[in-house]
Design a protein around this nucleic acid. Structure first.
Length: 475
DNA sequence: GGCTGGTGTCATCTA
DNA sequence: ACTAGATGACACCAG
């Protein structure tokens, strides 16, 4: 209820509590809490216009920083925010700003308009004026953005309503009455109803400093391992108990390739002269098991997968591939199974394989080292592969984000242009509304001397510019 | 001879 | 406790 009306100043723009609304020539309607009156359809229409006016004031609060749009405007969607706007400015041009948006009108807007609405009301006109609620965080909140999207269609009707405000308002008994040819409605709003609602062998062979070019056994003494020449006889050292994994009986195999008798069968990798020299340099024959694996794996699909690695590998038909360090060590220590098995067998099978042979400590250590290194080598390859894939993925993502940034920048520019237009038109609207206010003698109020202020109860008063009403919502 | 990319290896951490 | 996998760091090699 508006029980008392300041007969002098401030002058409330309201119809609330009027004993005789019929005296009014028209009222400025603000669809805010505290305004109560009956509504005629025409009043409702004006009500909407004023509500839209108030809603636009949100835009005043919305300041778009120029430096970094991503700090102030959280990214919500890639869908255009403004282009869907309803005032037909989806592709605004700077020259589309009305000519009457001159410096004067802008000044009016800047000086007078902010006093009409409390900030939080500007932030969200659908908040039911819960003044006790904390102000939602700052300008540029996501919710505000969402609201501004929804404002644009009403803006069209608002601008259309600008024509309705032609006429004169009369301030009588402190209440501003607008004489608006019956189109300015008594907008004593009821409670606002918020509608706010690597595989092994895949890589080139490691060129070891101890490769075949330099001779095979140079590492043997240095490793402290038992050199091949120092090894016990193969038959004593490695007694195969059972051939589980395709290995053949060691002694049998050994006997199959005695001494310097080297395999040259069609299923085996050809051995060039250098290899013969390498092997011949050893004082012991080639491991039969390895030779067997060589036969089994003559396809050469995997590097460690066969003991063809015991011989110079061939990238092409004639280029020999040197042995790796572990291959040479395995050869030197007469490991009776392939490196592929050492590396790739599951732990249970691997342990079972170890039980098939009697290996000395050096052999066991080597086998475990080979297994560890082999697995780690694959892991390193996988790791590098993943790293490269991640780099590619991140590069793609970076490209997408850059495109997104450009898109948002364009949208932001578009929005700013629309906002400038809206501000100009809003300023004009404010000026027009203000120009219709009249005192009891029919004289207009000067916009330079008076401004509109809204109090916490939702009423809007016409007050001198140097006056601040008690309980006025800070602007 | 220095630079760079590829690869193997080791050490370390984690599951 | 053991094992496998992941990964950073380093060394080596080839181009």
């Amino acid at each position: 209820m508006c029980s008392s009306i300041n007969s002098v100043l401030p002058r409330r723009i309201s119809c609330e509590g009027l004993a005789n609304p019929g005296r009014l020539h028209g009222e400025v309607s603000t669809n805010v809490t505290g305004f109560r009156a009956h509504r005629s359809p025409q009043h409702l229409e004006m009500d909407v216009a004023w509500q839209e006016l108030m809603a636009i004031t949100e835009l005043q609060e919305f300041e778009v920083p120029n430096e970094n749009p991503f700090e102030a405007i959280p990214y919500l969607s890639t869908e255009p925010m403004v282009s869907q706007g309803g005032i037909g400015m989806s592709q605004p041009q700077p020259d589309s700003i009305p000519a009457n948006c001159d410096a004067h009108s802008s000044g009016v807007y800047e000086n007078a308009y902010p006093e009409m609405m409390p900030p939080y009301q500007r932030l969200n006109p659908h908040m039911d004026m819960h003044y006790s609620l904390p102000v939602p965080g700052g300008h540029g909140s996501s919710r505000m953005l969402a609201n501004t999207q929804g404002l644009h269609p009403p803006l069209m009707s608002l601008l259309e309503h600008m024509n309705m405000t032609r006429g004169h308002g009369i301030v009588k008994d402190g209440v501003i009455n607008l004489h608006c040819t019956g189109q300015i409605k008594q907008a004593c709003g009821d409670d606002l109803e918020s509608d706010s609602g690597l595989s092994l062998g895949s890589s080139p062979p490691l060129a070891s400093p101890e490769n075949a070019v330099h001779g095979v056994p140079s590492y043997l003494p240095a490793d402290g391992m038992m050199g091949y020449a120092e090894s016990e006889s193969i038959g004593e050292q490695c007694r195969m108990r059972q051939s589980l994994l395709g290995s053949v009986d060691y002694q049998q195999s050994y006997s199959s390739y005695p001494g310097t008798s080297y395999p040259t069968t069609a299923n085996m990798q050809p051995i060039n002269q250098q290899t013969y020299q390498q092997i011949a340099s050893m004082k012991q024959p080639v491991l039969p098991t390895a030779l067997h694996d060589l036969q089994l794996n003559s396809s050469g699909l995997t590097r460690l997968g066969s003991y063809q690695s015991m011989y110079p590998k061939q990238k092409s038909s004639s280029v020999p591939i040197p042995l790796s360090r572990d291959e040479r060590r395995a050869l030197a220590l007469k490991i009776p199974f392939s490196l592929e098995k050492i590396v790739n067998l599951p732990v249970d099978d691997f342990n079972e394989l170890l039980t098939q042979f009697t290996l000395n400590d050096a052999q066991l250590a080597l086998v475990r080292d080979i297994r560890r290194r082999g697995k780690n080598k694959v892991a390193a390859q996988n790791c590098r592969k993943r790293k490269m894939e991640n780099i590619v993925h991140l590069e793609n993502e970076l490209g997408q984000l850059r495109a997104q940034r450009e898109h948002l920048t364009r949208e932001r520019l578009e929005f700013q242009q629309n906002l400038a237009i809206i501000k100009c038109r809003l300023s004009d609207l404010y000026t027009q509304v203000f120009s219709q206010l009249r005192d009891e003698e029919g004289h207009p109020y000067s916009v330079d001397e008076y401004s509109l202020q809204q109090t916490n109860d939702g009423n809007i008063y016409l007050v001198p510019r140097n006056t601040v009403l008690e309980g006025t919502v800070s602007v």
